[in-house]
């Protein structure tokens, strides 16, 4: 899409706000609509948009494929690990009240941790699926769209 000047300029303009919005949805999910799942999808959308307009090679330089699949596993492990931590403190699996001296604080920390896990996992899984599809296809001619 080299000659699509408008697409390139607009993508450069809106990709950073999309990522910022994803972070807002991620970390403000306790107070407003949203959470890890939505944030992950929005984050992935920014990267995929960048990839579509500027080419797979450039987005792979930002987020290399070997890192993507490891981060996806890390997200799931972060979720499970939070549960295991509460298990070691003496409460049941995924009972976040154990994570701090006050149960309400513990719940807050636990929710933030698991939502972060969900967000990382979802974002990287979406990007991984996009990589898998886009790596196989030849670049589509503009006339074919």
């Amino acid at each position: 899409m080299r000659h699509h000047l408008i697409l390139r300029v607009i993508t450069k303009l809106i990709a950073p706000p999309i990522i910022l919005f994803a972070l807002y949805v991620q970390f403000h999910g306790d107070y407003s609509p949203g959470g890890g799942f939505q944030a992950g999808v929005i984050f992935a959308a920014a990267l995929i948009l960048f990839g579509i307009v500027f080419g797979l090679r450039k987005v792979k330089r930002v987020l290399p494929p070997w890192l993507v699949i490891r981060l996806a596993a890390f997200g799931v492990l972060l979720y499970g690990g939070t549960g295991v931590v509460s298990l070691f403190v003496g409460k049941s699996f995924l009972d976040y009240s154990a994570l701090a001296s006050y149960p309400k604080d513990g719940q807050h920390y636990g929710i933030i941790a698991v939502e972060l896990g969900v967000g990382i996992a979802v974002a990287t899984v979406m990007v991984a699926i996009y990589y898998a599809f886009a790596s196989r296809t030849p670049r589509i001619n503009d006339e074919d769209w």
Binding site: G29, D30, Y31, S32, P33, G35, G36, F37, A72, A73, G75, V76, Y79, G80, G83, F93, L94, Y96, K104, Q107, H108, G110, I111, V114, E115, G117, V118, A121, V122, V125
Partner: peptide, 26 residues
């Protein structure tokens, strides 16, 4: 103490379910 009840249910009360969903996505 989480104002968004949906988040509280998803992440805390139904933490097992959400864990399962994350594993499904993975």
């Amino acid at each position: 103490g989480v104002p968004n009840v949906v988040t509280a249910i998803l992440a805390s009360y139904r933490g097992y379910d959400t864990f399962g969903e994350t594993v499904v996505v993975f």
